[in-house]
Amino acid sequence: MNKIHSFLTLLFVLITCNLQAQDKEKKLKSISVGYFGEMITHPGFKVSLSYHIFQWENEKKNNKTIKKSVSINPSIGGYYHRRYQTGIVALPEFAYNRTNSKGNSFSIGSGAGYLRTFIPNTYKVTNTGDVKKVNAGYNYFMTNVFMSFDKKLKWATKNPVHLYIKPQFMYALPNFPNGVGYFALEIGLKYSLK
């Protein structure tokens, strides 16, 4: 599992570095910071970057412009589930984004990455019969599917700030018997860059 962990970490770093080296159309478009609640009530945080790979515009009959894009969003975060586990997530995501003329947007997408859990209060019995506290946890391959709704805040005019809500379903492998599903709710602020 350490090889898988190293590979996924390296892949995440390479994707992020490669995106930063792309041309102007693919530069960093926004930074998001939010509450990441695994099963809603297990508190955590998540930080994401958004790079647009493709973008285009459609003009409606009423002269309103709809902006559309495909983005890759590397993210890192974590959550705390009291007396059960703490999870750290590295999850690059692909998304289709649609922004209306008022600046509000809707996104749908999916990702694949890495989940590392840490289990508290774990003990083992040594060969001599002593009880010893140990560090325990698991490495998982994780996927997710999500929808995101962004609302432009009226007071943010120069560089728009959006309030977003992002429900998502995550699935981690391997687990008993095959995998385990998680629902997470992410709520936060997205800062758009010029």
Results as ranks from 00 to 15, higher is better:
S6M: 10
F7Q: 07
L11M: 09
V13C: 14
L14I: 14
C17T: 09
N18F: 12
Q20I: 08
D23I: 02
K26G: 07
K27Q: 06
L28C: 02
L28K: 08
G34Q: 06
G34P: 05
G34D: 08
F36C: 08
T41N: 14
P43K: 03
H52M: 01
H52Q: 02
H52K: 05
H52S: 02
I53T: 05
F54K: 13
Q55M: 10
W56M: 10
N58I: 09
K60A: 04
N62D: 15
K68W: 00
S75D: 01
S75F: 03
I76A: 06
I76Q: 00
Y79W: 11
Y80A: 09
R83V: 09
Y84N: 14
T86W: 08
T86M: 11
A95R: 04
T99C: 05
T99F: 00
N100T: 09
G103V: 02
N104S: 14
A112V: 08
A112N: 02
R116D: 07
T117H: 04
P120K: 12
N121S: 13
K124V: 12
K124L: 11
N127W: 07
T128W: 07
D130F: 14
V131F: 03
A136D: 08
Y138K: 11
M147R: 07
S148L: 01
D150Q: 04
K151R: 14
L153A: 06
A156Q: 04
K158G: 14
L163P: 02
Q168M: 15
F169R: 12
Y171V: 04
V180M: 13
F183D: 11
L185K: 02
I187K: 01
Y191I: 14
